[in-house]
Design a protein around this nucleic acid. Sequence first.
DNA 1: TAGGCCATCTGGTCCT
DNA 2: AGGACCAGATGGCCTA
Length: 141
Amino acid sequence: MKIKKSRRLKANNRERNRMHHLNSALDALREVLPTFPEDAKLTKIETLRFAHNYIWALSETLRLADQLHGCTEPAMLIQDSSSPSTSSSWSYSSSPSSSCGSLSPASPATSTSDILDYWQPADRHLSQQHHLLLPASMTFL
DNA sequence: TAGGCCATCTGGTCCT
DNA sequence: AGGACCAGATGGCCTA
C-alpha cells in the first residue's frame, strides 16, 4: 500500500511537470502571436485557434505576394472578429489606388466544419479587428 | 451566483 | 515494471 502510494505521488509529480512544460510551450506560442492590447492574455483554446489562423494568414500573404508580382503596395490581411471566421471575415487590404486591392484570399477553412470555428468572436480581449500586418519586405519575398 | 478557465489528482492505456 | 500520455473529476479563482 505504501509502495502504491509513493508510486502514485511520483506519477502526480511527473504529470504536474508535464503540464508545466505544456504550459511553457503555450506561453512561448503566445509570445509570438500579435494581440491587441499587447498584454492581453489569450486562453489556451484561443491561443491554439489564433495560432492556426495566424499561420494561415502568413502563408496566404506569401501566396498573394506571388500573385502580385511587381506590386509595391504594402499588404495587410485583416480579420474581422465581429463575424465568424469564415472566408468572408478575412479581407486583403491595400491602398485604394493600387491594383493590389482586387484579390481576395482563399479561406482558411478546410472540409472539416470544426475548422470554421477557429476564431470565436465572443472573446474577451480581442473585441475589434485583428490586423495581421506584414512588412513589405516580407510580403514581397 | 453561474459560467469559464485553470491546476491538480487520478486511473486507464500504451509504449519501451 | 515504469514512464508518458490522456481524459474525467474536482475545487479554486475570477468576472459578468
